[in-house]
Design a protein around this nucleic acid. Structure first.
Lengths: 201, 201
DNA sequence: ATCGTCATGTAACGTGTTACATGATTGT
DNA sequence: ACAATCATGTAACACGTTACATGACGAT
């Protein structure tokens, strides 16, 4: 019997949950997807397999050997209800004020998984929080300011400008996403996830 | 006597080197800067102090107790020549093709440190490589494509668009940086680092 | 027959996190 | 007198990386 204790998961574990929520997968399948994704989370076998075991031992996911096909049996993992709760909580968690730029990749990943897990309204709420975080972002927190360079060198100016441009792009994207999703909601009138999780390929 | 062996440093160690190359610092000072920087590298004392010891034991940095002021003595770290070599190598290392977006923060950090370490021409070369990497970036590598969604949902479209916008912003910034630095070079005619490292505040 | 891919693991290792501990100095 | 900040550490712990190992299956 798996323990019911819920703790905070690592980023890798949340990503695995997200992937499994789209479709049941084998460990090897998860490794392949993450390797091709070329994201900052590489997902080596030495990380994935132990993480799967951790999650299973806690009743967050389950696995059974897929003997359906004629091919060699392989272990298929799927998300259990506690895992779905954990994942959805994480997906709804807003981006925090000082970490928008640092967590941009993670936010897009969340947005990916959110399509299958959250309602359109929930995604819109998340985007609203995102927009507020962008607006209230305090540039003065950044490292180049902390270094208290006296004269504004070309480098310093460019670094500040990089942040500005990034923030503007982010703001523009969030607003576009809001517009499109609102239009989608009005068209479909969906109160549940936009797309159902797809079966395994 | 410190060992001469050079290995690849961790990101944290390179950041420490970069900070120390701007000005000698105490461990506490490094922690403070990194905490206020709110970047993805948090720099807890449990990471910084061991890292400083590691670097010192390898002859990459050195430290001596600063007894000059009336205040309580504190240990000041400074970069040694081998450390300067290591740092400069790292700074010159171009961004790799599939990792531009993931390493954006790191690239800006490098750009920060590069001001004090590299010549304008070297920075321009680094920016050229950056630009090429951006241009040759293959969007099809990204995770949302790997998931083989059949229909292009709104979410999918938005995710692709986020990447596009990000790449365009990056490209625009790189080109702006090139223009400004070239103008600066023509004005100053500098063949060495744009600014000398500043003394400790 | 062999090569590449599918598939699952494990062991050693280093490093970062969390939490704790200590004490001096400065400001109010 | 007290709190906040300066300043330096350490210990336990968990995680991810790297490298290795094994073997089945399908294609040529």
């Amino acid at each position: 019997m798996a323990s019911e204790r819920t703790r905070d998961l690592t980023t890798l574990e949340y990503i695995i949950l997200g992937l499994l929520s789209i479709a049941p997968q084998t460990g090897y399948g998860i490794i392949s997807v993450m390797e091709r994704a070329a994201s900052r989370w590489s997902g080596s076998p030495g990380a994935i397999y132990p993480a799967l075991k951790r999650l299973e031992s806690q009743g967050i996911i389950s696995s059974d050997v897929d003997a359906s096909s004629d091919a060699r049996p392989r272990r298929l993992y799927r998300v259990l209800p506690p895992g779905e709760r954990l994942l959805d909580e994480w997906l709804r968690l807003p981006v925090i004020r000082g970490a928008i730029l640092d967590e941009r990749d993670l936010s897009l990943l969340k947005f990916t998984f959110a399509e299958h897990r959250l309602t359109v309204d929930e995604v819109l709420a998340w985007l609203d929080a995102y927009e507020k975080a962008v607006d209230s972002y305090d540039v003065t927190q950044r490292i180049w300011y902390d270094m208290r360079m006296l004269a504004q060198s070309v480098h310093q100016q460019l670094l500040i400008e990089a942040t500005m441009m990034e923030l503007n792009t982010l703001r523009a994207w969030v607003q576009m996403a809001q517009r499109r999703l609102r239009a989608e909601r009005d068209r479909i009138g969906a109160a549940r996830p936009a797309r159902a999780a797809m079966p395994i390929a």
